[in-house]
């Protein structure tokens, strides 16, 4: 009898838990479905097979957008440029972010620590279009601040925004300056979460700096590393603001990325279908890389210490 009541209560509790659970996630779920879930389905399964200019209803055109995508020389350019950005920026953000975090997380006076942290993180916080105004003047070939100092020490002016290859470098420098603070702050958090006892124990065992880093800190940081890597990869694949504001994809097409191509096709040429085919391919690439990343994470990400 008693157990029956308890069982009933539990059932009742289950029902209520289900309901409250759904109610709690409802706002997030709804916005997710309307602004992320639904759109990705629409992008991948519908719009990329259509010709659509917004003013007239979409027309089904089969694979035409994809055929155009694979025959247009501009496509290989934008994919290549995007891959270049990923190849340059992902290692830079991860390595520099980690090094800076190690540089800050030492036994130093706390005002100094606060100063370093603020200096490195502050560019993350400010409006991107505000700081690109500053940096384009820094990068200017003939009147720029950077070339002025290079000339002073006898180095020839660098064609930062003039040459395709250098423009890529310039955008990368800006991107690291602007964004490395986010990976930095994640690594700082990761380092702070390492219990002091681990380090003390290792030191007593006579471990040197090299040992401490590679045998203790690095393995303990792998979960952080994984999170940082995942978010940075995706951010780099959709890099838009930096090339749009600094070079507008130029000179020529040398910094034109997939995101710029999508923007231009969708919101300048109003070819929503063609733009969606790029969106679908971008999604497929990111998905594939994420799947690979997740399947390899067991090999190197260390969750033992949690």
């Amino acid at each position: 009898m008693g157990s029956f009541v308890a069982g009933n209560l539990r059932k009742h509790r289950h029902f209520r838990d289900n309901l409250t659970g759904y109610l709690f996630i409802l706002p997030a779920l709804l916005t997710f479905l309307v602004f992320i879930g639904g759109p990705i389905v629409a992008s991948v399964f519908f719009l990329d097979f259509c010709k659509y200019n917004i003013l007239t209803p979409p027309v089904y055109v089969g694979l035409r957008n994809f055929l155009k995508l694979f025959s247009d020389p501009m496509s290989s350019t934008v994919f290549l440029n995007t891959f270049k950005f990923v190849a340059i920026l992902v290692p830079l953000h991860v390595v520099i972010g980690l090094l800076l975090a190690l540089g800050v997380c030492r036994k130093i006076a706390s005002p100094l620590k606060y100063y370093y942290r603020t200096a490195i993180y502050f560019p993350v916080v400010v409006t991107v279009s505000a700081v690109t105004i500053i940096w384009t003047y820094f990068f200017n070939f003939d009147f720029g601040v950077i070339n002025y100092f290079l000339n002073l020490v006898g180095i020839q002016s660098v064609p930062w925004l003039k040459s395709g290859d250098w423009a890529l470098v310039a955008v990368a420098i800006f991107s690291v300056w602007k964004g490395v603070g986010s990976s930095f702050i994640f690594f700082v958090i990761g380092l702070q979460n390492i219990p002091d006892s681990y380090m003390e124990a290792a030191k007593i065992d006579g471990a040197n700096w090299f040992h401490l880093f590679f045998k203790i800190k690095l393995p303990l940081l792998t979960p952080t590393m994984f999170l940082v890597l995942t978010t940075i990869l995706i951010n780099c694949f959709q890099i838009f603001d930096e090339p749009f504001l600094i070079t507008n994809g130029g000179p020529g097409t040398s910094t034109r990325t997939i995101a710029l191509q999508i923007y231009e096709q969708a919101f300048r040429s109003y070819d929503m279908g063609y733009a969606s085919s790029f969106a679908a391919v971008l999604f497929a690439i990111v998905l594939a890389i994420t799947v690979i990343q997740f399947s390899f994470q067991k090999k190197w990400v260390n969750y033992d210490y949690e």
């Binding site: 992008s43 679908a280 994420t290």
Partner: peptide
């Protein structure tokens, strides 16, 4: 549901901007 929402982290904003634009419109 958690995995579904979490997968949102992996979706590049640019891939969904067009339908999002249509929703807003």
């Amino acid at each position: 549901l958690f995995i579904a929402i979490l997968s949102g982290i992996m979706i590049p904003g640019q891939s969904i901007i067009i339908p999002q634009f249509l929703v807003v419109k």
